[in-house]
Write a protein that binds this DNA or RNA. Structure first.
Length: 119
DNA sequence: AACTTGACGAGGG
DNA sequence: CCCCTCGCCAAGT
């Protein structure tokens, strides 16, 4: 199972497609939930191609609650703007409250998977 | 094959 | 809160 396998990528996309409007998930969170073979970096790698996969890619941000699209082909601030349009709030420094906007799939346990991340 | 660069993350200063 | 280091894993050069 490597990052180029169709099935490997699909698992990421399927999960991302489940994120409700107005909510987000982090790369590390996705990697933890998918488990075996997935790491934050590989999730990020898979996501760079998400634009063409009918996936709400804007709902995936980093563990600091910020958008990591600075040096991409994606226009600056586009991701944040799209999220704000869905109701996700960001402070002046471009950071959102993960406690409030992160979404957890049915069955996962936030406290256990993501200890003291939200401060 | 060596080295650099990421849509990353945690810990320390 | 910012910055740096390290661990991580795959791609590009």
């Amino acid at each position: 199972m490597n990052v180029n396998d169709k099935a490997y990528k699909e698992k990421v996309y399927e999960l991302v497609r489940q994120i409700p409007v107005g909510h987000v998930m982090t790369y590390g969170q996705i990697a933890t939930i998918l488990g075996e073979g997935y790491t934050p970096r590989t999730v990020g790698y898979v996501m760079h191609a998400a634009e063409t996969e009918n996936v709400p890619w804007q709902r995936v941000i980093n563990s600091q609650g910020k958008c990591s699209t600075g040096r991409l082909t994606i226009p600056m601030n586009l991701q944040q703007q799209m999220l704000e349009q869905e109701g996700v709030e960001f402070n002046a420094k471009g950071k959102c409250d993960l406690n409030k906007f992160v979404w957890w799939p049915e069955g996962s346990e936030p406290e256990e998977l993501h200890p003291s991340l939200f401060s």
